[in-house]
Design a protein around this nucleic acid. Structure first.
Lengths: 176, 176
DNA sequence: TGAAAGAGCGAATATCATTCGGAGCAAACG
DNA sequence: CGTTTGCTCCGAATGATATTCGCTCTTTCA
């Protein structure tokens, strides 16, 4: 009963759908900060009724704009006080795919391939410097891994998930 | 009526409290993956009753082990398809504190000070390469910013919040 | 050995999510 | 220019779930 539109069923995919109106942005902004708000509360923060908000949230979910709602754990308080970024240089293209196996480790939070003077970039959080050393050792076990550079985080001033807002002033040519 | 323990009120701070038993780890593991589970469901996944789980979650929250529960937004689907890491080199110590003002920008997701061949490390997500350029321009406006190196993410293979688990095998000396 | 604190459970209650029917509104259509 | 269609909102009703309460069991410490 949901997909009642039989006008061709063009399958409007997440990206090319409606471009997010002001209400949606406000909803995303609030939920990115604090999911677990009641729909009623969320409703009168942005000026809508509870069912309306519920409908929109359900849509945002289905469209993939909200990927998940998760509990954000504290690294130190859960036994992993050491945060680090690791740049991995590989010779040729080998080793790139083998790196994905590291997704299994709970210490590894991010794996990106990047453009720049390095190939892959990892974000890891581990229990101790010994654990970090062990992780690096495993990295060098991979074929094709030529070098790594580690950036150990001394202090995190800001750490959050993607935000809803967009600064339009950044698109301006230049203010100087 | 909550803080009824008047035995010195030693203020057991988040870190030095009880060291997380197996139930707590399982709870954190599930919630880091999917908050918004019902306590009943969460309960029989880990083998506890709903009120017991509720009690524990409340405690984990209060202890700061769960920092927040948030909706994870999709970058591209919310208008910011370009992810990048920026290394910032500053001359002297200046510019380090001024960088914190960038927390205001919704494009900036992380700001760390790191040990290594650079000073500060930013994770940013923006709408376009023009927006990234504008952001870099603002960085160079800061006094003391000497150089930046940007690593534009081509593909993200893994991106998640801190996980509950700890690999004990990493602490071993070396398997080779 | 006994008292006290802590943590679990089942049942009861309060809160909230979710559904339903109807109304307002805009764009497409005759 | 009027009508139709589709969309999204709202208020009320329903069902599910969070939260509380009283009790029991186990452990700890005197």
């Amino acid at each position: 009963m949901a997909n009642s539109a039989k006008t061709h069923d063009v399958r409007q995919r997440a990206q090319d759908k409606r471009p997010l109106d002001a209400f949606d942005r406000k909803i995303l902004g609030e939920l990115a900060q604090e999911a677990g708000l009641s729909y009623a509360e969320l409703g009168n923060r942005i000026g809508l009724s509870a069912p309306a908000v519920h409908e929109r949230v359900k849509r945002l979910r289905a469209a993939g704009r909200i990927r998940a709602t998760v509990a954000v754990l504290d690294g130190p308080a859960t036994g992993k006080p050491l945060l680090a970024f690791i740049h991995v240089d590989t010779s040729g293209w080998g080793g790139t795919q083998e790196l994905l196996a590291f997704s299994e480790l709970p210490e590894v939070e991010e794996i990106h391939s990047v453009a720049g003077d390095t190939c892959m970039l990892l974000k890891v959080r581990c229990a101790s410097s010994q654990a970090l050393e062990g992780l690096l050792a495993r990295l060098y076990d991979l074929p094709g891994v030529k070098a790594t550079r580690s950036y150990v985080v001394l202090s995190s001033y800001l750490e959050r998930t993607p935000q809803a807002g967009v600064s339009d002033t950044l698109e301006q040519p230049s203010s100087r």
